[in-house]
Simulated scan of single mutants.
Amino acid sequence: MSNNEDDKNKKTVTIRGVDKSIYEKAVITARETGRTVGEVVNQSLTTFLGLTSKAGNTVNQVVQGVKETGKSFVQGFEEAKKDLVVISDVEELTVTRDEILQAGKPISFRNIKRLTLNIDQDTLNFVDSIIGVDELIIPPTINKIILLQKCKFVKKISTIQ
């Protein structure tokens, strides 16, 4: 996404009544994960609103969803401390086997609308995680069960035709 398009989707806001200690935790989390405070807050709001907006959710379903999301967030935070390459906040990306191998470290793909992996099963070992991807496109030779163990918040998986 170009900067102009990205700027159109963002707005400077002031929110009254934010607990100072919660904001400070967001700042610390942003620093430790290499993200901006805005990215951390956007992800938190997106997750929370996604959990609460589903019609027919009972209180127990929302509570369970919040627990699972919290667990995923903590896992993501721990991943940020790993020695890996993080590729994030891209509209559309196609990656090949050679590109992944040349990175020299495990790779985490995050917040990508459409991610195409032109890789083989062995190269999948160099993918640490795939988080927050709207559409993941893979070759038909990739074992989806092994792949899904690396995925969180992936909306759709398709195979390359």
Results as ranks from 00 to 15, higher is better:
D6C: 09
T94D: 05
I130Q: 11
V133D: 10
L136H: 09
Q61V: 07
G104A: 04
I107G: 03
S72E: 09
P140A: 09
S53R: 10
R110W: 00
P140D: 11
V18G: 12
E68T: 07
R35V: 07
S44C: 10
S88E: 12
S88T: 05
S108D: 00
T46D: 08
V62N: 05
V74A: 06
S158C: 04
T116R: 08
T46R: 07
P139H: 05
V59F: 09
T58Y: 08
L148W: 00
I28K: 14
I145H: 07
T69Y: 03
L45A: 15
I157T: 10
Q102K: 13
S72W: 03
Q121L: 07
A26E: 04
S129E: 04
P139T: 06
I160T: 11
I15C: 07
N143G: 01
I28M: 10
S158I: 03
Q61W: 05
L124A: 05
S129T: 06
E24P: 01
V63K: 11
V127E: 08
Q121S: 10
S158N: 11
I131K: 12
A26M: 15
Q161N: 13
F73C: 00
E32R: 14
I28H: 09
S72M: 05
R114P: 02
E39A: 15
I142P: 00
V13W: 10
I160F: 03
N42E: 14
K156Y: 02
E39G: 13
Q43H: 12
L93Q: 06
L51M: 02
N118K: 14
R35M: 15
I130R: 08
N111T: 03
Q75V: 04
N118F: 01
T159R: 10
D120E: 11
R16G: 11
A55C: 01
I138M: 11
K25E: 07
G70C: 03
F153S: 10
V95P: 03
S2P: 01
N143A: 02
V90S: 02
E24K: 13
F126R: 13
V62H: 03
T116P: 02
V27A: 06
D128I: 00
E91G: 01
D128N: 15
G50H: 03
E32S: 11
R35Y: 09
K105R: 14
E135M: 12
Y23D: 12
L84Y: 02
D98W: 00
V37F: 12
Q149R: 09
G17Q: 12
L49K: 09
K82Q: 13
Q149V: 01
V13H: 11
V63F: 09
T47L: 06
V86G: 02
Q161V: 06
E135W: 08
I28R: 12
A26P: 03
Q149I: 00
R110F: 01
V59T: 13
K71Q: 08
T29Y: 12
Q161S: 13
S88N: 08
Q149A: 04
G56Y: 05
G56S: 04
V18T: 15
L93I: 04
K113G: 02
K20E: 14
F153Y: 14
Q161D: 13
K152I: 02
E78L: 13
V95I: 15
N4V: 15
L115G: 06
I87E: 09
E5K: 14
L93K: 07
C151W: 01
S108I: 01
I15Y: 11
L124I: 04
A30N: 09
L101V: 08
L51R: 00
